[in-house]
C-alpha cells in the first residue's frame, strides 16, 4: 500500500469527520476504506489519485452513480476534492456494502438454480436503470457485484469505466480493444466497436458471469480450449459451442444463449424482455 495514500486518507477522513476502520482494496487508480460517520453509520471512502486518473473520469463515474437511483446500484453519499502536499484526490463517499463481492460469496457458497435466477434478475434490474440513464457500465464481473449484509440482491459497483452515451466518448477509436475486463467483455468491446456499445454489451457481460457460475468455465470455452481461445471466439463473433447451450438447456437457463449472441441485434432488446424470458423458463 502506498503510504502517501494512507496519509491522504487520514487527512480526508479528518476533514469529513469520518473514522477510518479498515482498508478494503485498491484498483488501478482508486483506494477504498471502510469508515464510520460521527453517527456511527458505516460508509465507504474512495480516493481517486488525480495523477493517475483524470478528474473528468471520476466526475463521469460519480455523475453516473447519481443518475442511478436503485437498490441494485451502489449509492453515492458525497463527492468532493482534496488537495494537500500528498497530491490531489477526488473523494467519493459511498454506501458501504458489507455483504462482500460475488467472488467472495462463491468461495463459501455453491449457488443453486434459484440463487442464480435471483442474481440474474437483480442484475437485469440494475441494467434497466443504467439503460434508462443512457449508461453502460462496461466492466461487469464478479468483483464488481456486491451484496448488502443478509441480502441476496446484487448491487452493481465500480463505475470507473462507465460510458455515458449522451456524452462524447473518452476512448479513442483506433485502440485495438476498448476498456473492460477481456474475460467478461462483449465482442463489440473487444473489437472496440464503439458505435455498438450499449446496454447489450453489459447484458453480454452479465451472461458470461452467470454462465460461468453454471459451467465453471467461460461459456465460449469448449472442452479442448483455453480461456484465451474462448476470448478469441468472442472477438471473432462466434456463437457459443453446443456443449454450453446444452448445459443451459439442462439448467433451464436458455436465456443465456440469447444473452451471449455475438451481435447486439441478436440479444434481448429490452430488459423487460429478458426478465420475461427468465420468468417463463
Amino acid at each position: 500500500m502506498d503510504p502517501n495514500h494512507i496519509a491522504a486518507a487520514e487527512e480526508v477522513a479528518l476533514k469529513l469527520g469520518l473514522k477510518l476502520i479498515s482498508f478494503c482494496g485498491a484498483g488501478a487508480y482508486k483506494v477504498t476504506y471502510k469508515t464510520a460517520t460521527a453517527e456511527g453509520q458505516i460508509v465507504a471512502l474512495k480516493l481517486a489519485d488525480r495523477s493517475k486518473c483524470t478528474r473528468e473520469r471520476t466526475e463521469r463515474e460519480t455523475e453516473a452513480l447519481k443518475k442511478c437511483s436503485s437498490e441494485f446500484v451502489a449509492k453515492v453519499i458525497s463527492v468532493s476534492e482534496h488537495t494537500s502536499d500528498r497530491g490531489t484526490f477526488d473523494v467519493i463517499v459511498e454506501e458501504y456494502l458489507d455483504g462482500g463481492t460475488l467472488d467472495e460469496r462463491l468461495l463459501t457458497e455453491k449457488l443453486g438454480r434459484q440463487d442464480i435466477v435471483e442474481l440474474l434478475k437483480g442484475l437485469v434490474h440494475a441494467l434497466a436503470v443504467l439503460r434508462e440513464a443512457r449508461l453502460v457500465h462496461r466492466d461487469i464481473k464478479p468483483t464488481n457485484v456486491m451484496f448488502r449484509s443478509g441480502h441476496h440482491a446484487p448491487v452493481l459497483v465500480d463505475f470507473g469505466l462507465v460510458r455515458d452515451l449522451s456524452q462524447s466518448s473518452m476512448t479513442v477509436s483506433w485502440m485495438p480493444n476498448g476498456p473492460g475486463t477481456p474475460y467478461y467483455s462483449s465482442p463489440e468491446q473487444l473489437n472496440n466497436d464503439k458505435a455498438l456499445i450499449g446496454w447489450h454489451s453489459d447484458q453480454f457481460s452479465v451472461g458470461v458471469m452467470i454462465a460461468e457460475l453454471i459451467l465453471d468455465r467461460h461459456p465460449f470455452q469448449s472442452l479442448s480450449m483455453t480461456s484465451a481461445e474462448a476470448i478469441q471466439s468472442v472477438v471473432d463473433r462466434k456463437f457459443i459451442p453446443p456443449c454450453s447451450a446444452a448445459a443451459f438447456e439442462k439448467m433451464r437457463m436458455r436465456c443465456l444463449v440469447q444473452m451471449l449472441k455475438p451481435w447486439p441485434a441478436l440479444r434481448y432488446q429490452r430488459p423487460e424482455d429478458l426478465i420475461n424470458a427468465i420468468e417463463i423458463e
Binding site: A195, L196, H200, P264, A265, L266
Partner: peptide, 13 residues
C-alpha cells in the same frame, strides 16, 4: 449477413 447484423445492431442502440 454481417452487414445486416451491423446495421441491426446500430438500430438496436
Amino acid at each position: 449477413a454481417d452487414d445486416a447484423l451491423r446495421i441491426g445492431s446500430l438500430v438496436a442502440q
